[in-house]
Design a protein around this nucleic acid. Structure first.
Lengths: 265, 265
DNA sequence: GAGTGGTCTAGACCACCCG
DNA sequence: GGGTGGTCTAGACCACTCG
């Protein structure tokens, strides 16, 4: 593992048996898998600061003994936390808490309205257009449709705290968009509506981002100067089975909107 | 480790429907974990088209029998492929090939020079500056340093096929940047150099993206008009243990550069 | 009810790292 | 050598889906 030069903050090296930590022998809530209970117990230890960044957590054998479960169950719990970036393992050495906990919220596929609410902002939208049209080549490609197949296209202007932020176009295969009530578009992302109505699970999305300039029409809608910077985003949302559910085109005010991403190596 | 390879394949007259698929009873390469061999065998079936999008793959029991391994081993192989987005599971139903295989290459943390090369482009860079300075608040925050700690700051202009694309500033904690030969900056990402020299593993990165306009100086460097769109990217690269390794500021030509991302729900 | 994936066990041997 | 994680087994029971 890394010898990283001169860690000037060592602190821990607690002599062994900090046995008070983590262990509450787990009252085994029925209906909740053991590995989930263990995972959340360990996660709590980390977020509460009982396990400090850089600190080694108890070994898998140790945790298995404490919680009264087999080692494979512990490993499943830990694997999830590693996936989340809270822990990392080093063969022959141990399992450790990562130094910097990355805030995942910014990189999750979230509903515009929900995530605004979580940040204490008032999200609103006004409907600009709603039309059933035939997919042009670009949209067809994105939604894995034949060119000319019918889609629903919804234009809206999204605002935060009353200030226009995004000109938004959603494209949905017509067969997924039957009976979507218009007013719902103003309170929920389209893919969320489709998920609820078609009992499919939205799983991932691919985004492409570019810097552009506002033309006259866009500038007026977003209440910015013509030629002001705009973050243009194309997004395709996929269901669990890999089927495209929605294709979006978003024109975001450059001075009010930034985008956060996590990459893996 | 070696089992002297005893998959007596006489038994394989099983009248199973698609018994031809997937199964070559696995010659169990010594030194390569079984789940890796199984995973890659299944992955090959998918990329080769032997398993079609939407198709159900054999059940876990079935695969375990065919490959001569336990079910947990099969599950580990499949879990990896699900993580990669090639498969998805449905409880009580089966495991299936996803409809659309997302190209992961665009969303991996990659070296600018390597990834350009893979796309058949000639990546070059010219060094603009190299200085040891004290971290300002923003850089210190990003690199988890105290304000005023020493860092190495490297400015360069990156080009593709001779055309300037990105004005790039890399910031590295001085303690990680000892003896980095200047000429290397022109052929490799800084975090890659650090990874090699400090025997640490780069694991993830966080990016923030904004749309901006080119000012006069930037415009001249990138050979674009003043006021042209620029995709501004801040990126922090983290080692496996969560330690920040590098903080970058990139000014990318809006008309030549786009950024791709995967989100999860 | 039959088949599938979801969880879990109680071991085992190995590879790796450290003192 | 002793402790750690990495892999693997041969079972088990459960929950879910579907015909």
């Amino acid at each position: 593992m890394q010898k990283s030069v001169g860690p000037n903050e060592d602190t821990n090296t607690t002599p062994e048996s900090n046995a008070k930590r983590i262990s509450p022998p787990l009252s085994k809530i029925p209906g909740v898998p053991l590995y989930v209970q263990i995972r959340e117990a360990v996660r709590r230890e980390i977020t509460d600061g009982d396990l400090q960044p850089g600190e080694r957590i108890p070994s898998e054998d140790e945790l298995g003994t404490r919680f009264g479960v087999s080692r494979m169950t512990v490993r499943k719990a830990i694997a999830d936390l590693i996936q989340d970036g809270l822990l990392y393992r080093s063969h022959g050495v141990g399992t450790f808490v990562t130094q910097v906990q990355i805030d995942r919220d910014h990189t999750r596929l979230t509903d515009f309205f929900e995530s605004a609410q979580e940040q204490g902002l008032e999200a609103t939208a006004s409907l600009l257009s709603r039309e059933r049209i035939r997919a042009n080549p670009k949209v067809a490609q994105a939604l894995a449709l034949e060119e000319g197949e019918e889609i629903l296209r919804i234009g809206s202007l999204r605002s935060l705290d009353g200030e226009p932020i995004t000109l938004h176009y959603a494209h949905v295969p017509a067969k997924l968009a039957t009976d979507l009530p218009t007013e719902e578009f103003l309170y929920h992302s389209v893919w969320l509506l489709i998920e609820n109505r078609n009992s499919l699970k939205v799983k991932r999305a691919v985004e492409h981002l570019e810097a552009q300039l506002a033309d006259r029409a866009l500038a007026r809608l977003l209440q910015i100067e013509r030629g002001a910077p705009v973050l243009y985003k194309e997004r395709t949302v996929f269901a669990e089975d890999g089927t495209p559910v929605e294709y979006e085109e978003c024109y975001n005010r450059g001075d009010r909107y930034r985008c956060s991403v996590i990459l893996h190596h």
